[in-house]
Each structure stands twice: as structure tokens, then as C-alpha cells.
Design a protein around this nucleic acid. Structure first.
Length: 432
DNA sequence: TCTGGGGTCCTAGGACCC
DNA sequence: TCTGGGGTCCTAGGACCC
């Protein structure tokens, strides 16, 4: 394996831990009768499939499949369908990540269902394969969630190892280690180019055109060619896959942008209805900003018609607004977002989606107040109070510009209970 | 009728300046 | 025939991720 991943005598290793079919697995934890049955979870508005159990995958239900097209299929094949329940998934994720952090002091929570752990020096003291099996058993016992573990000297190789663990659950028992030069090459030759982490549709298509159809062949390309075609990002990936430790754990970054965007259940053409939507997004954005203690100085507002309806006139409009002062007050954000909306709105179009994005975030405690334009200091106290009411008491405070009749409520017809975060929904165990 | 949402990073090229 | 040149900043858009 060369010496590229060794420093002194300490062997450097990473583990990538990934929850299997996470959302579908979460639904199963609280409804064990679903074990062994096909389960799918739908996106917002029950639009398309975003998670599938292995049984659902085997039935040929593809990722992103529009739910309405598969409705009959679901019924015919006995597929259990759920609306996405982020309160449940977020809570289950936190439990899993908490336990994982007991197994290494160095952890990067990469996404809701994935973490990298650093195992530097562990190999001298543990059988890593065995250690991985312990992690799997512990997570299963304490949360009910099945996971896969890939162990390797670099992060991108950890991804490869994880994929092998998932693909051969019986042989690997859910854990696979790339721990020699031979196993690295064998694993890369097995990995299709389009399955490599960091190589998406566009790049894999271009690589396939020059007969680069697996990850090993990709690592044999000249550096300057890779850099030219795929920029510095591609070159870093090539070196990391070759066994050089290029990618390392990343700290949870403070977000640089915060977006709130939604598709509507139905088309909207009335500007007053759009105002209500945009105001609601602005409030949500304010909450997100305050949670990470940031203010924004720029907001971006956009409107889209339905791109799937080629029979209707299409329009994409957007505007970037520089705010006079950094803010995270929902009241201000509503005002600015609405003014943006009025600049881009055009009569005569049926809009399907709108969104706002907060940009150029600054820490809340570093506000630069300008002399004449600044925010109303009363907002600060008001927002604190509202956040407290919303998060601590379960009350929902609404603003005047919001719809009070829940007319816009997302379609979530098949929502499971919030088993783990809502007392009324807690699971009942009946003993006889 | 019905097709998700929220992020990051990099580069090319234009605007502008001296 | 020949039409400066180089630096910086900004933005749009492409590519990727889960």
C-alpha cells in the first residue's frame, strides 16, 4: 500500500458508516410488521420516491420515481408508502450519531445518515473488522437501525469499502475493510465509474466515452488530464482513491447559505397568494438563521413555472437583494422578500415553485450597524420570544401575513406518527 | 390532476481599474 | 499587416453531494 497513508508507525484509517435505506428503516423501527416488506418514503407533497427498502428496490421502484405514476404498482405489489417524517428521521439520526461518537473521538457527521470516523492508530490495538461488527450490533440494539461500515486508509476508499459491505451483506456481515494494496486495487476494479463518490452523471459519461469504466482505470489517468477535465476537485479525488490521504474530516461548518424553497401543490398565479408563501418562507428562514446565530446581508428570491408542463408558458425569474443591514428578524425578512417578489412577479404565468435563499451570512454578534438604517432593536426580543414559544411550548405563532387556515399545507397523506418526538405519538406496548 | 429540498465548491469570463 | 496588458473582483453556471 506504499507509505502514503502511514505516518511514522501509526496506521491511519477511516470508517464510513452509513445507515441502510435510512428513512425506510426509521419507519420500520416503530412498525416491525414492515420488516421484510417493500417500503418507500415520498418527498414533500408526496411527490416522488426518495427512499426504498431493499424489497422495494428489488421490485424495480427507482429513486425519484414520481409517486402518481407508480400508484397502481404500489398497490399491486403491496408496497407500504409513507410521506416523509423529518421530525422522526432527524431524531433517529441524532441517536445514531451520538452512539457512533463513542467509538472514536474524531467524527464528521457527513449527512443525516452518514458519518466518517477516524481510526488512527486503532489497527495496532483492534481487529478493525471485529470493531466494526461491534458498532453494527450496538447501533442495531440501541436504535433498531441497520448500518454498513466501510474501512479504508482514505475517505473516498472508505466509501468504496462501504459499497462493498452493502452489496455483499452475507459475506461481509455489513463491514468491509480495504487494508492492503491488493484489496484496494481489487475494490477499485470492482467499482463502476458512475458509482464513485464525486463522479456524477456528466463526468462518468465523459469518462465512459474514453473507456474509463471503473474506478481503477480512473486512478491510472494522467494528473494533468484529470485536472483539466474535472478541475482540482477531480484531481484530489484521484489521489485520494490512489491511497494518498487528501480528504480529511471536516468540521461542521457554519452554513454559508440558507435556503427555503418549496413546490406548490397546485399552480399559483395570484400575486397575493405568492406573497403569503414568500412570507412563510421568510419566517422559516429567520428561524434557521437564528438557530445558527447568523444574520444575512443578501437575499435571493426566485419564482419558477412547472418545467414538466411544456404545454404552459415557462418563466424563471430571480432577484438578488442587498439588505441595508444584516438581519435575522422574520419581520424584516418578510418585508425584503416581498419587495423582491414584486420585482420578479409577472402576470399571466402559472407558478409552481418559489424560494428564498439567505446569503452572505455574518455572525449575529458582529452586526455592523450603520448610522441611519438599522433594524428595530425590539425585533430581537420579539424573535426570541417567538422562538421560545415555538420550540418550548409546542404553540405555533403565526404572523399576520401568513395563511391562518392552513390552506397551503403540504400534501402528507401517509405520514407516520412522530413516535420519538411527540408525547401523544409515543408507541404503546400492551402486555397481556 | 400529480414530478423534492438543501447544500458546497470551482471556473470562465466580463467589468473595471491603472 | 498592426488594435496594451495585467490584476482584481464579481457573477453565472456547471458539477457534485445526500
Amino acid at each position: 500500500m506504499g507509505n502514503s497513508h502511514k505516518r511514522g508507525k501509526v496506521l491511519l484509517m477511516y470508517a464510513l458508516i452509513d445507515c441502510n435505506n435510512f428513512y425506510a428503516s426509521c419507519e420500520r423501527v416503530f412498525n416491525p410488521s414492515l420488516v421484510g416488506k417493500p417500503v418507500v418514503v415520498l418527498s414533500n407533497n408526496d411527490g416522488c420516491v426518495i427512499a426504498r427498502s431493499n424489497e422495494a428496490k428489488a421490485l424495480g421502484i427507482v429513486m425519484g420515481a414520481p409517486a402518481f405514476q407508480f400508484e397502481k404498482d404500489f398497490e399491486a405489489k403491496g408496497v407500504h408508502v409513507f410521506s416523509s417524517n423529518y421530525a422522526l428521521y432527524g431524531d433517529m439520526s441524532a441517536r445514531v450519531m451520538n452512539i457512533l461518537s463513542e467509538f472514536s473521538p474524531d467524527i464528521e457527521v457527513y449527512s443525516i445518515d452518514e458519518s466518517f470516523l477516524r481510526f488512527d492508530g486503532f489497527k495496532e490495538h483492534f481487529n478493525l473488522q471485529q470493531y466494526a461488527l461491534e458498532i453494527i450490533a450496538r447501533i442495531k440494539r440501541d436504535t433498531g437501525i441497520p448500518i454498513s461500515v466501510g474501512i479504508a486508509p482514505t475517505k473516498s476508499l472508505g466509501k468504496v469499502a462501504n459499497k462493498i459491505a452493502k452489496k455483499f451483506p452475507v459475506r461481509t456481515q455489513g463491514a468491509y475493510a480495504i487494508d492492503s494494496e491488493e484489496s484496494r486495487i481489487k475494490a477499485l476494479k470492482w467499482t463502476k465509474i458512475e458509482d464513485v463518490w464525486g463522479i456524477g452523471r456528466a463526468h462518468s459519461k465523459r469518462l465512459q466515452a474514453i473507456q474509463i469504466d471503473n474506478a481503477y482505470k480512473f486512478t491510472q489517468l494522467p494528473n494533468d488530464y484529470v485536472q483539466k477535465q474535472m478541475s482540482i476537485v477531480g484531481l484530489r479525488l484521484k489521489r485520494d482513491l490512489s491511497g494518498e490521504r487528501i480528504l480529511d474530516l471536516e468540521k461542521i461548518p457554519v452554513k454559508k447559505n440558507i435556503a427555503v424553497t418549496r413546490s406548490f401543490k397546485n399552480n399559483i398565479d395570484d400575486v397575493r397568494d405568492l406573497e403569503e408563501r414568500v412570507a412563510t418562507y421568510a419566517i422559516k428562514m429567520g428561524e434557521k438563521l437564528r438557530r445558527q446565530k447568523s444574520c444575512c446581508t443578501v437575499i435571493y428570491v426566485f419564482l419558477h413555472t412547472n418545467q414538466h408542463r411544456q404545454d404552459l408558458a415557462q418563466l424563471h425569474r430571480a432577484v438578488t437583494i442587498k439588505l441595508p443591514y444584516p438581519t435575522n428578524s422574520s419581520i424584516d425578512l418578510i418585508k425584503f422578500a416581498k419587495s423582491g417578489l414584486h420585482r420578479i412577479y409577472k402576470e399571466g404565468y402559472k407558478f409552481k415553485k418559489a424560494g428564498i435563499i439567505a446569503m452572505e451570512l455574518t455572525p449575529e454578534n458582529q452586526k455592523q450597524y450603520t448610522l441611519f438604517t438599522s433594524e428595530n432593536p425590539k425585533h430581537l426580543i420579539l424573535m426570541k420570544t417567538i422562538d421560545h414559544l415555538n420550540t418550548q411550548t409546542g404553540q405555533k405563532v403565526k404572523f399576520g401575513s401568513q395563511d391562518l387556515k392552513s390552506f397551503w399545507k403540504m400534501r402528507r397523506e401517509r405520514l407516520s406518527p412522530r413516535y420519538s418526538t411527540r408525547l401523544e405519538d409515543i408507541i404503546k406496548v400492551i402486555c397481556h
